[in-house]
Design a protein around this nucleic acid. Structure first.
Length: 140
RNA sequence: CAAGCAGACUCGACGGUCGCGGGCGGUAACGAAAGGACCCGUCUGAGGAAAGUCCGGGCUCCGCAGGGCAAGGGUGCCGGGUAACACCCGGUGAAGGUGACUUCCAGGAAAGUGCAACAGAAAACAACCGCCCGUUCUACGGGUAAGGAUGAAAAGGCGAGGUAAGAGCUCACCGGCAUUGCGGUAACGUAAUGGCCGUGUAAACCCCACCCGGAGCAACACCGUUAUGGGCCGCAUGGCUUGCCCGGCCGGCCUGAGGUGGCUCGAUUUCGGCAGUGAUGUUGAAACUAGAUAGAUGACCGUCUUAAACGACAGAACCCGGCUUACAGGCCUGCUUGGACC
RNA sequence: GGCCCCUUGGUCAAGCGGUUAAGACACGGCCCUUUCACGGCUGCGACACGAGUUCGAUUCUCGUAGGGGUCA
């Protein structure tokens, strides 16, 4: 993620949590704040409780990919903060670590993010069928 | 063919579209220039465990550049390998398996101390019952470790001789120990002789031999910012090594935008030759193979593989050598046992 | 990323290798009281997990898991 598209400073996260619009989805909670910059930015937060480093990294990559697709469709410039949501599925085997967290697929993450942003009214289009995601929807 | 043993390799492949980190080159804005992008081109981009942080080293700083003592920790059959190790290799011994082979923190209990609950007469200077002998005979004294009972463990095992009853008291075999000879670098093996004496525990203290200064890349260095600031403690404490002694120095401690270097050419990787049973050593040729800093590998499509589904464990953070732990499959080599056929 | 520490009932916690695993609070029952509280009696309930050493492990050793602290 290029620097101008990502939010890193702690105080900016704090400001978004206090003042931004908030909406929770199935896999994430999103805070949105209108930005005066020349482009929109993305801030990511994934707790260690979400899973091991492979699972955390994968979630962040999927969110970045989804953000990249819809970046041009926003009604202006926003700072979008995504916090991963996790549910500790009761592990079938109690000896196992508490890592039995479901990591959603790419299309699930994308659908979730689009729905939340549409509800918050920051996407330029209103209809879900206008979803610009490429070929992945092709049913075979 | 079946069951198994040991070792090695791999971690989907190929193509396409979009996207990301790093190197190199170029260019736009901006700059007098040097330069310089999030733009363009090109090359390149996670593991066998990257993990746990359990050992060993490199590297950096402190100490050694004041001296000493004591602790503390580690290793533990023998020989070899290595930068080093607690690792590896080859042996020895013990245990398990028909076997291939596997497993073992494997020194000392005759230097000393401690502990061994309950049960039992007794847990290491053995006499409760029993057996034998004697006497003043329902008792006492003496002898005795064959038998009983307890226990995790009971005073080498078993048989014969022997005896009042017994006992390694004597003898054969087995086991242990010591001495000597022989083989072996050694651990040890083996033969002869000797006497029979002492349970277990050292992952109890300990003894013996050998090894170890402390801290860690958030180290450390530089630039910038600042602080000649703010707060706390205080006259004998605090810091400089875990403790102590002597000596020395300094009042002490806390509080903080950032950036750059360290940062990847190294006990490196690949393919061979030679030496060695092997670990490994040596030598020749070739190669350069992540370097991020909230942290780069992802998404989608097609074909192949598959009964079907991309599908286990899992993400470098200064770097190496090991160990340990997690793990779905695939594939190759050698060997063992059993069966069938020729 | 490095370096340390801890794990015993619901909570806080003692514990020489041999205990019925001490105790306190909490919880249940009974007594006391007109009732509640206090107090008394009584009960329930635990050694994180897996191996090893040992006759015997909460304790000693090794590994695993979980939790916590600290360093720019």
């Amino acid at each position: 993620m290029k620097d101008s598209f990502s939010v890193k400073n702690h105080y900016e996260f704090r400001r978004a949590y206090n003042k931004g619009l908030r909406k929770g989805g199935r896999y994430m909670v999103v805070n949105v704040l209108r930005s005066s910059r020349e482009n929109s930015r993305l801030g990511l937060s994934v707790s260690r409780k979400f899973g091991n480093s492979v699972q955390r990294n994968r979630f962040k990559r999927l969110v970045r990919e989804s953000f990249r697709k819809i970046r041009g469709d926003l009604k202006g410039n926003f700072d979008i903060f995504v916090t991963a949501r996790f549910s500790e599925r009761a592990a079938a085997n109690p000896q196992r670590k508490l890592r039995a967290v479901y990591v959603p697929s790419s299309s699930e993450v994308h659908r979730d993010l689009v729905r939340i942003l549409r509800t918050l009214g920051v996407l330029a289009y209103e209809n879900a069928n206008d979803d610009p995601e490429p070929g992945s929807r092709a049913e075979t």
